[in-house]
Design a protein around this nucleic acid. Structure first.
Lengths: 190, 190
DNA sequence: ATTAGGAAAGGACATTTGTCCCGAGTGAAA
DNA sequence: TTTCACTCGGGACAAATGTCCTTTCCTAAT
């Protein structure tokens, strides 16, 4: 559930060490709660998470939130926006203190045009995200809240993170009231 | 809603014409209703749609279906499975008679390792799919059925296709009963 | 023309989910 | 210690959705 990618992380560490122009990749930090990207705003950098955990979520016009995924070490953010040339699709918020490699857009764009290793890494990341996002969308639409919650709790138990009730509800796309009910009903069934 | 990609189509036409080994890319046809890929089975080819419209959908264990997207000319299918080395994520079914370029997996894999143009095309397709899938998942979770149906009808009116009630319901992830109700209630409001 | 079979729409009820609100519990300040 | 204010969990009702079943309509065969 918290995605990570050690290959991409070491690829970028390598790139960082050997870069010619020292301003192409810089290390930045965000304290817990700060946003790396804000939905609908234009991004000035692409980032790769060096340490910490973030959440990637939509804020809809009706003020409800939907968490797409949790991103940890080695996950890249902002690249879709550059590739498609659009403003930020969603928000990325630091759930813990976070440090990132921030890559300038022109530099990243030039790498895209020449570095096949980077292309392959990105394709793998994208394929993984498509698999996750689409199969989750299907599951959430076609199963009961209780089932999707059970799945979430199981995923969470395999990870090291604490997810607040708000975030659980936002991940499932339901209200806190419904989440409480589902939690209670899962309790009963064991 | 019916995705298409003329750049990818002409890229593949070019490739097809100039291929060395005549068995790397072949043209195949599927009549309406036939499946190009079956969920959980292993794919033997990657395909790019030359003509016709397909639907890409999950069948869950509870027998309900969820349509991820409709794919038309120039859309590629089966590539995610090769990149991630997994069995078919979902079903791809011909909604009209369909012809495709069927590409052998080893050939495609070798192209991936060397052809940056292909990599860039794929990255754009993937980025587009992630944008669509994730924003639709969010919208469907956080808005009422009526809103999502209205959006679907609007999208459909801009396209040339007819979508059956079953397919509309599967696209929205709801039952036909609920779809009928929502249709009726939309009627009333104008 | 009549009737049987099947598909589709919608009524009726059950279940699920959301909204609103109240009361218990907690922490901080007087 | 008392009280105020705030948060959180859950009760009660409303709205939405699913399930089941009946009715209607269409088609095809006799």
């Amino acid at each position: 559930m918290v995605r990570t990618n050690k290959f991409f992380l070491s690829y970028l560490e390598q790139l960082y060490k050997t870069q010619q122009r020292k301003e192409d990749i810089i290390v930045k930090s965000f304290t817990k709660g700060k946003r790396l990207f804000v939905q609908n705003e234009n991004a000035s950098k692409i980032m790769l998470i060096k340490d910490g955990i973030t959440k990637c979520f939509f804020t809809e016009d009706n003020d409800k939130e939907y968490i797409v995924e949790f991103l940890g070490k080695g996950e890249i953010v902002g690249e879709i926006e550059v590739i498609r040339n659009i403003p930020c699709l969603c928000n990325i918020e630091a759930m813990t203190d976070v440090t990132v490699y921030a890559i300038s857009i022109p530099y990243f764009a030039s790498l895209l045009k020449q570095d096949i290793g980077l292309n392959n890494l990105l394709l793998e990341v994208f394929a993984e995200r498509i698999v996750n996002t689409s199969s989750r969308a299907s599951y959430q639409q076609l199963y009961t809240t209780e089932c999707t919650l059970a799945k979430l709790l199981e995923l969470q138990s395999k990870q090291e993170i604490e997810i607040s009730r708000e975030d659980k509800a936002a991940y499932l796309g339901i209200t806190i009231r419904s989440l409480n009910r589902a939690l209670k009903s899962l309790d009963k069934s064991r």
